[in-house]
Design a binder for these strands. Structure first.
Lengths: 213, 213
DNA sequence: TGTACATCAGTGAACGCGCGTTCACTGATGTAC
DNA sequence: TGTACATCAGTGAACGCGCGTTCACTGATGTAC
């Protein structure tokens, strides 16, 4: 009994899930700020107060959406990384592509996740946990690369932040400064340049040690 | 006849400038989305329709603010860079610090400048020009470094974008993911690591050429 | 220097809007016996 | 298998809110002669 159509019954049965789905859908052409509870309910053919059976308030709905968004993002990132047998550099490259790709596909959702509307806090522990994992993923790659001798050993946290910032920056600028960043730019190449430069910057001295003190 | 106090006269004389100033002030604790024309007018002790003598609509005011913001940012960046006699690496380092510093001091203004509310477009040519200069500044530094032999010669545009993305990423994450990015992080050190890694990644082979093809 | 008049830069009342949220309600469902 | 009743998940009317913007207006200023 899949419900492709909007329901007719008084008891809808699946409203919570459909509210989330519809909200994500509306985030395609609406910013998180102007996403309206009423509009979501309307689109589902349900009274405007029905959502309040499932969410305390608008913020709670937004938090649920953001949590879901992080889940999706993490799934994408993990799938892109593959298993740990490959090179760390390749993993980072693929993670970056998946990250930017997600941000491009779901601009507004991405903005919600990293925006001020719902801050991952004690109030939404699930959201906090899942958002933290993004950074951990990047850290893991770097750690992995250091253990393999692929990267020089350095402070993982600061390095992971730097890598993440580079990737996040590409994703954000593409959205927020399209006039400057989208014109004449091949996105994939841009990602590769950014990540490639980063990786080149943390290569160990390796076979050709230079004489620096 | 400086006007430290709000005016009393019917003809205010300086309203346009004061509207901008007050708006920027309100952006200290208000997001651009919820910045209200009425509130700005109220704070200036002026009727809520007075702003319409000076701006066509809210968007025009926001565009003017954003333009002003870019002007400030550029001033800061240029001042930080100093003259062109120093090393390009040092210039980039200082530019990054000034950039992140500006974003930290004026979070909401920064968001407005890079947000979707006012896109630098044909509609606001002045805004478009001044926003373009940010990228040009980064490009100039890289170009300078390449000419000095400090950096390996590469595609300046993609490289400048990568550098800019890294810097912009640090600035944005600090604002947007404070729980992950602000805790236990020394911001200055974080900037230095990010920029330092980038610079290390574009160093020319120099005195110790490796045998790569 | 004085006067007539155009223009500029304010005022204040009013409009319509969509929103989040509350409230008392009611129809449908599940459970105990 | 049937009935009584609690609970769950909806409804629809209504609230107050602040907003952007319009309108006809008016007081102040600048200019021509």
């Amino acid at each position: 009994m899949t419900s492709t159509e909007s329901q007719r019954a008084y008891h809808h049965g699946n409203l919570r899930a459909e509210l989330l789905e519809q909200a994500v859908l509306q985030l395609r052409d609406t910013s998180p700020e102007q996403l309206s509870l009423r509009a979501v309910a309307r689109a589902l053919g349900v009274s405007q107060t029905a959502p309040y059976r499932h969410f305390n308030d608008k913020e709670a709905l937004l938090a649920a959406i953001a949590t879901r968004g992080y889940g999706e993002l993490l799934d994408n990132l993990r799938a892109a990384m593959g298993d740990t047998s490959g090179s760390a550099a390749g993993q980072l490259q693929r993670l970056a592509r998946a990250y930017v790709d997600f941000a491009s596909r779901e601009e507004q959702l991405f903005k919600l996740m990293f925006g001020p509307l719902v801050q991952p806090s004690a109030r939404y522990p699930e959201l906090r946990d899942v958002s933290r994992e993004t950074l951990l993923l990047v850290q893991a790659i770097l750690q992995h690369g250091m253990e393999r001798g692929e990267f020089a050993k350095q402070d993982t946290l600061y390095l992971a932040n730097a890598a993440w910032a580079g990737i996040h920056g590409v994703a954000t600028l593409r959205i927020d400064a399209p006039a400057l960043f989208r014109k004449h730019i091949d996105l994939l190449r841009q990602i590769d340049v950014a990540v490639g430069t980063f990786i080149a910057g943390i290569r160990p001295p390796s076979v050709t040690p230079d004489g620096a003190p």
